[in-house]
């Protein structure tokens, strides 16, 4: 009971719907400590991903993720573009041409995604970025898989941990990205990218159930 290409496409569509639904909230978070475009950027990117999936779903989960990656890289226009783009690209490369993804593949793919974001943006846990959501999500996914969790359980564990990780950015001083220019004044706000990571993983988990 793995995820085939159609299922992965459905999961991404759910992610796009969630981004559209929370666009205003992401914009407000980014207004507080950035340039108020994170919701706009991601929505533009995911809308393009969805229309490309509408035009045709590639054959393998890896190819679907690769389409998402290249589309996000081209369309987002802010830091989230190269970061999420690299995340999806690394996951796609790691998953190769497998026709279905099982729980182990999901955990492996998430790990590759995190490695990609860190390689691209050079942020560490505690810098108040999307890494603060994604890093604990990967660890939770790996734990869940080790405990025998299925695809839905692994993604759900990742989503829970990502939400906690996003909340943990509130008291932090941002050390990467635009918010880092605010120094201490970034304290007291949730990081937009960490929040969108948590939202995406939540919607992926629900769509994979």
């Amino acid at each position: 009971m793995g995820c085939d290409a159609e299922r992965v496409a459905a999961v991404l569509r759910a992610g796009g719907a969630s981004v559209a639904e929370h666009k205003a909230e992401l914009i407000e978070l980014d207004r507080a400590i950035g340039d108020a475009d994170h919701g706009e950027n991601l929505d533009r990117g995911f809308a393009a991903v969805l229309s490309s999936l509408d035009a045709g779903v590639p054959e393998t989960p890896g190819a679907v993720l690769k389409t998402a990656a290249t589309t996000l890289i081209s369309k987002v226009g802010g830091a989230a573009g190269p970061l999420y783009g690299t995340a999806f690209l690394r996951a796609a490369t790691k998953l190769g041409d497998a026709s279905e993804l099982d729980a182990a593949a999901i955990a492996t793919g998430l790990r590759a995604a995190l490695d990609g974001v860190v390689a691209r943006g050079k942020a560490e846990v505690g810098d108040a970025t999307m890494v603060d959501a994604l890093a604990p999500a990967v660890e939770a996914a790996e734990r869940s898989h080790a405990d025998g969790g299925d695809v839905a359980a692994v993604l759900s564990a990742a989503a829970d941990a990502a939400k906690e990780g996003a909340d943990s950015t509130v008291p932090l001083t941002a050390r990467k990205g635009r918010a880092s220019y605010l120094g201490e004044r970034s304290v007291g706000h949730a990081d937009p990218g960490a929040t969108s990571t948590a939202l995406l993983l939540r919607s992926f988990a629900e769509a994979a159930r």
């Binding site: 890289i73 226009g77 802010g78 830091a79 989230a80 573009g81 190269p82 970061l83 783009g85 690299t86 691209r120 943006g121 990205g177 635009r178």
Partner: peptide, 9 residues
């Protein structure tokens, strides 16, 4: 920011 990451990509 993203100009660096986009350039590197």
């Amino acid at each position: 920011g993203s100009a660096q990451m986009t350039a590197e990509m």
